[in-house]
Design a binder for these strands. Structure first.
Lengths: 233, 233
DNA sequence: TGACATGTCAAACAAATGTTTTAATTTCTT
DNA sequence: AAGAAATTAAAACATTTGTTTGACATGTCA
């Protein structure tokens, strides 16, 4: 009888091969994407046999799922959405922290970069591994930002303008990472790494807050929010 | 001697197979990307033999290049960057037209959709076919928008803030198309098709112009820190 | 008509890939 | 230490892929 196929291999603390495969898979998937990545290359970098992937993980797809889960967890552990921001802080401050963390999550050097790389590909051709990530991480993130935006605008989180403004902020955050090859070619003077994060965060929050404060008035659909002025003055 | 490999096959006007392969290849490349697309599927949809791709085009890669060139030409013929805008029009009006055309180019129904789909993939994993497109189309577009933005801001086109604002506008345009699978899942109420283009264009231009008009004054080359947000250092 | 270029087709080729198999080896338990 | 379980290793398997080959068909023009 084959225990592996039923319960998977034992998770010994000294299971080194499995860990190294996960590490190597992170690199390869981030560089080549799921389709172009090969288990042979993963095993080569892990110093393991070709059969190791199918033994320690069920198949390539399951391995990919674990890689995505792992890199996502690392990224959000190091860069939570609102690091050290008081719950009652001004929404403008929350927005700035949110944008900064977002950018850092994408431009951090080291293994965390994988998360951004893999996510970029998931946007274009999503895999099944995206579903759980969406529920666990992305939806709470979206709700959080929607709440911040609603507070700044003095509107309901379900308002259409709030949703569009969420898009406007998020789009600026993902753009620099997602389109970085195009940016580098069209604007070689634009640096795109962790050292630029603060400057980019300054611009994005400055640009967005200027827009949010002076947006042309649109009809409020179902405004159920009382304090209309979180204004500074 | 084989003339095909030297000069390519004759371009007879009644060369139907070649045209149908180009058409089918457009579909398949847009749906699956260069890597996942197979010449067998392309030939099947074109009703042609498997050898047809290598006969009429040199190989899969050359075919991809012609598809990209074709779809790009169609997209910009139907939606030029500034359709019917006078050269001396106000920059705000130019910006609105630019954004609208940008969105239409991505969300047009029909064969033009392919351009957006293929470009999305080129962002994540660029191929050699991107180079010529970049020089011919994208750089002029970028320069055009940079000029508009410089005029609105009253700054030099080479100013860093101008560049960052270009990014802020372009990012909002590409976002809805590039991240449409994510948007659909997180915000099912958000429609994403040609019927939404006008509304999206209104929001993007409104948001961006509000920001541009009320941007906090930045020095020419130094970043600024306005709010009392820094806690760590 | 007959040579010739051009296009089409079925088949095969060569390389790559995920996975499985089967045996050897290591590790753990008793 | 002995047997069982877990892990590793080499090889092979089954597909899929882009590409090529060689035969055949078709149209053109002397």
């Amino acid at each position: 009888m084959n225990l592996k196929s039923a319960n998977g291999p034992r998770r010994d603390p000294h299971d080194e091969t499995r860990r190294q495969i996960l590490e190597a898979a992170g690199e390869v998937f981030a560089e080549a994407g799921f389709g172009r990545a090969t288990v042979r290359e993963i095993c080569r970098r892990a110093g393991a046999n070709i059969a190791a992937v199918n033994y320690h993980f069920r198949d390539k797809e399951t391995l990919y799922g674990e890689v995505l889960r792992d890199s996502q967890r690392m990224a959000f552990e190091k860069y939570p959405p609102l690091p050290g921001v008081a719950a009652d802080a001004r929404p403008e401050e929350k927005l700035r922290a949110f944008v900064r963390s977002f950018l850092l999550r994408l431009f951090d050097n080291g293994p965390i970069t994988r998360f951004g790389r893999i996510m970029s590909r998931e946007m274009v051709e999503p895999t099944g591994a995206l579903d759980s990530l969406l529920k666990e991480r992305l939806r709470p993130m979206a709700d959080l930002l929607r709440g911040i935006m609603a507070e700044i605008l003095g509107r309901s989180p379900d308002d259409e303008q709030v949703r569009l403004c969420v898009f406007s902020v998020v789009s600026q955050c993902v753009f620099y990472h997602h389109c970085r090859t195009m940016i580098s070619r069209l604007f070689p003077e634009q640096r795109l790494d962790a050292t630029m994060v603060d400057r980019l965060a300054d611009h994005i929050t400055g640009f967005s807050l200027a827009a949010l404060k002076h947006l042309p008035e649109a009809k409020k659909s179902k405004s159920r929010r009382s304090p209309p002025a979180t204004r500074k003055h």
